[in-house]
Design a binder for these strands. Sequence first.
DNA 1: CTACCTCGAGCTCA
DNA 2: CTCGAGGTAG
Length: 695
Amino acid sequence: MSDHPDYDRLSALRADINRHNYAYYVNNESTITDADYDALMRELQHIESDHPEWVSADSPTQRVGAKPDKGFVTVSHPVPMLSLDNAFSDDDLQDFDRRVSERLATFAPDIVETPNTQDLFSDHASVDNSITYCAEPKLDGLAVSLIYENGQLVRAATRGDGATGEDITLNARTLNTIPLSLMGSGWPAFLEVRGEVYMPLAGFDALNNSQREKGEKAYINPRNAASGALRQLDPALTRARPLEFCCYAVGQVTGGTLPKSHWGILDTLGRWGFKTNPETRLVKGSAGCAQYFAQLGEKRAQLPYDIDGVVFKVDDMGLQARLGFVSRAPRWAIAQKFPAQEQTTQLLAVDFQVGRTGAITPVARLAPVFVGGVTVSNATLHNQDEIERLGVGIGDQVIIRRAGDVIPQIVKVATPATPHVPIEFPLDCPICHSSLERVVGEALVRCTAGLYCAAQRKEGLKHFVSRKAMNIDGLGDKLIDTLVDQGLVNGFSDLFRLSKDDLLALERLGEKSADNLLQALEHCKETTFAKFLYSLGIREVGVATARNVAQYFGDLESLYAASIDQLLSVPDVGPIVAEHLFGFLQEQHNQEQIAALLSLGVHWLAPVAATGQPLVGQTWVVTGKLETMTREAAEARLRDKGAQVAGSVSKKTTQVVAGPGAGSKLKKATALEIPVGDEAWLIAFLASLDTDAGI
DNA sequence: CTACCTCGAGCTCA
DNA sequence: CTCGAGGTAG
């Protein structure tokens, strides 16, 4: 480090600015005038421009970086970001509390004794033995994971599907409530902080006012505005949005320890520079939870941000560990949602959609109504039984509910229209007018025309070209509609018979689009047996089943030759799936379609006999960050060699590959004495396999 | 189910 | 500028 006097000044400036930032953005206190603050910033910028070698990523001047020319990169979470179970009533909450207590009592009767914590809602805290929960508002924003290595923010990612999300580091850095380097001391070498990025209501209103002044469109709700802001490609634009980050948990932690209670952890995170929610409280038992929920519900309208419920977590981390997880959610936490918002609107009409399998679904067309943050104008009515249950008719005023779980539903009729106009379920297919059948035991009605029905053809084609199937780029819904409507495409194989002239004749489809599409069609011909099977859209055959079937039979000839019994011996294939598969393959039309596709050049490489692969029967785990390839790529290469790739380490694991940042998995591997290699080792190992194979 | 962002391409008008 | 396609989020 330099002992240059300017350097001392620079360090002092950064510390000062960070302190003022923290006070202002995290604690909502002004500790300096704007003018003085600007002066400090200018002075810092001045020193940094004189000494560019001193500029570091955690300097307050470095919040806005250059705009990346690529989109966002997917990254995996060191520990999956799980979702929470939902409670919709105090009863649900009582059940939750009972499950927690019982489970803890079963395993260790004495552990239920609660730690000595302050209690805000119960007078007899000292005598009861109910569980202590940490209660906090559930902010309505986006879940984000922040990784700090040695106190420096190194990565921010969206939640994504829980296992992998998008790298939004550059955008996250622009939030003043996200520390670039942690304050204080004592933080673990590797710390993952989780929380919510959200837009406070005041900022949202201001943003929308300025949008309107600029003649641009206003955002519909704070959550969407926050979501949009975060996935802005240019960090400067994100910077201009009033976003905040509020932490609520930690993910992976290595190289240090944290307090033994959730409350303590939040408190500690607060001291390291994070914003924590001021409404957070400790409560006891389901009664305490219910009381907190009721009180926050009353306060909700006054809060400066949107919330959609309350989260209760068992406060004691030791108890959390004992409770563990069920599938995708922790047993020690629950989210209680506020009652779903409801609105009344008019049922204008009911359309009947025909799905890929011919299923007829009634869809309610509603007078647009704003409910739960979005404008709802469609809602599914599921089936005839549902229509009868509701007793709903055209023109009725109906109550729409949009629960937190996204899908709007018609709850009931508010005011029936007079006279009642019944919803007539069609007697034949609304598209092709073939007859309908209702399978006994099913609520569904189906069009019997199969591929003779234009709607089913369209849906089948949409499935065929979709990403997980043949993955044909540039063939969207609209184009498929036109192609089928114009009679240019009927079966799958017709796609490959399209000429450039056919395409150029279509509206809004020029030279470039036509070329791109033809190229995509050519490109997709090389596929895999599994994807091909999936693409065909056989009932009940999804990605997983297709893969199993493909692996089991290896090639089309064997599959064609298979009896029902043989189909049944494929993993995860039961009598129903076997029947569908068998029926599909027997049908002459399908055989012709498959033959046509193959003759037009669709092909796949014969899988190298599984037994011939070097890693067959081995289970590998890849963890941590890799430098020269993505983790997914590494896993794919291992699978190519016949290995099973698992997400977690167990006794059965053969080999672990660990990059920097590996945590619990690495620890477990060491504990179980499973061999561990790093990336360089992996590359060398894969290379050795290839040379061996070549000899 | 709806809303948002990004991208490439086509259309329109100067 | 507008459109369609593709992706994300809850």
